[in-house]
Every structure is written in structure tokens, then in C-alpha cells.
Design a protein around this nucleic acid. Structure first.
Lengths: 122, 122
DNA sequence: CAGGATCCGCTGCGATACTG
DNA sequence: CAGTATCGCAGCGGATCCTG
């Protein structure tokens, strides 16, 4: 219970959540980012999910939230040093995805076709 | 629909699943691995989950399954070149986890404490 | 603008039992 | 040994509506 099976296991638990890696990675690209901008950047994310993941990231010490106490409201999010280091560890994954976009796309088209068949068979 | 928002997004979909990164990483460490050994290595995984994830990895062209058609059964799993390249992209995540084990452990102890309070409050 | 609150369906995942 | 089959459900995550 106090331990993880390995370093990768530990990391995976921290970034568990559908949107966390994407959030971290986007924040790493652009410095402090306002809520609205972040939401547009991470496509298809809902308010509920974005906020929830941001809170967890903040509680985990990866992201820093700054509330400027203005009206209209203005809040932005940035990475802590810890968050920044994690975001850098994500870079190779991003590169892998770009380098293998063709294969990945093909694989997913195929998987979608199977899902289609399964749905129509039922 | 044909596209991902970025390379990272594409990669994340491929490794979606609680155990896939761990499986890939373990296979990268040790060459062809028998089913039973893999199961012992990836701790706490059930047969159902391990098989399911392995099948998806195989369908995605990341893992190669070899059945020796013997009795008693003997099967082993290894990485394809594509799988190997992805596993390498996982290395920095593993290192990050090891380098920050202390923080991660603390964060999780804290999170567990909160869950405790929430459970007792109810 | 930056969230909070609620309702709810789906499915990922675990536990258990069985098989060639 | 290397799986398969079935059951059950928490909780992840989407949709919608509301607020300071």
C-alpha cells in the first residue's frame, strides 16, 4: 500500500484521468493560460471534467491556480516546477504519436469498423 | 474523426487501458515473456484484464503473440518494433516516477486520507 | 467569465467459476 | 498452463441547467 510496483506505476497514477496529460502538455507549451483558453485548447472536454482534473492536478502540486479576483472573473493556470518536469517526460509520447500517425490512424479506423459490426450484429 | 488533436492525443488512445503501459514496459525489459510470468510481473492484474489488454495490443500491432502449440500450453509475448519504440517513449515517465517517489507517495497518502474522511462522513 | 450542482447512462474493471 | 465466460457495479464522464 505504501509502495508502487515501479516508477512507471507511480507516474501513471498521478496522470490517471482522461485529460490530465493533455492539460499538462498544453500548459507546458504556453505559460499561464486562462480557463477559457484552456478549455478551447483541450478539445471536447466539458467544464465539469476540466475543473475536476485541474483541481486534482492542483492538489497534487503539478498545477498552480491564480485567481486575480477581478470582475469579470479572471483565473489562470500554470505549471509548478514539478508539473513542468512531468510535462517534459510527456514529450517523447507526443513525438511517438506524430511519428506514427499513419499506423495509429489505420489501427483506429479498423477498431471502429469492428465496433460497427458488433453493434449491427446485435 | 479521422484526426487527433495532437500527437500526444493519438498516443494516449493507443495506451488507453489501465495496464497497457505497464505491460509494454515490462516486455521491453525482458524479451519474450510467458503468459504466467507476465501475470506475476504486472501485479494485481486479473486474467481477464491481462488477456484483454494483450489482445488489443496485439491487434494494434504493438505486441506479438507466439503460440508454441505444445502441451502443456506454452505461449509467449514480445514487442514488435512499433511496440518497442513506444516502450522507449515510456522510459522518461518511469524515471520521473522514480525521481519523484517521495512527493508522489506523500500526495497519495493525503488523497487516501481525504477519501477516508469522505467515507466516514457519509 | 469561471465555475457549481445534479442527473444519469455506459463501461471499465474486478471477482468468481469453468475449460482444453 | 493459458486462457474463457458470466455477473455485477462503482465511478468516470457527458449533458444540462444554474450562479456570483
Amino acid at each position: 500500500m505504501p509502495g508502487f510496483t515501479c516508477g512507471l506505476d507511480a507516474t501513471l497514477r498521478v496522470v490517471a484521468g482522461k485529460w490530465k496529460p493533455l492539460i499538462l502538455y498544453f500548459l507546458a507549451q504556453g505559460g499561464p493560460t486562462r480557463y477559457g483558453e484552456l478549455r478551447r485548447a483541450v478539445r471536447d472536454v466539458s467544464d465539469k471534467m476540466l475543473i475536476q482534473q485541474l483541481k486534482e492536478l492542483e492538489a497534487d502540486g503539478l498545477v498552480k491556480r491564480t485567481d486575480y479576483k477581478e470582475v469579470p472573473p479572471r483565473v489562470d493556470y500554470s505549471l509548478t516546477p514539478l508539473g513542468r518536469s512531468l510535462a517534459q517526460a510527456l514529450v517523447p509520447l507526443c513525438n511517438w504519436g506524430e511519428a506514427n500517425l499513419v499506423e495509429v490512424t489505420r489501427v483506429f479506423a479498423q477498431r471502429a469498423a469492428e465496433d460497427q459490426r458488433r453493434a449491427s450484429r446485435k
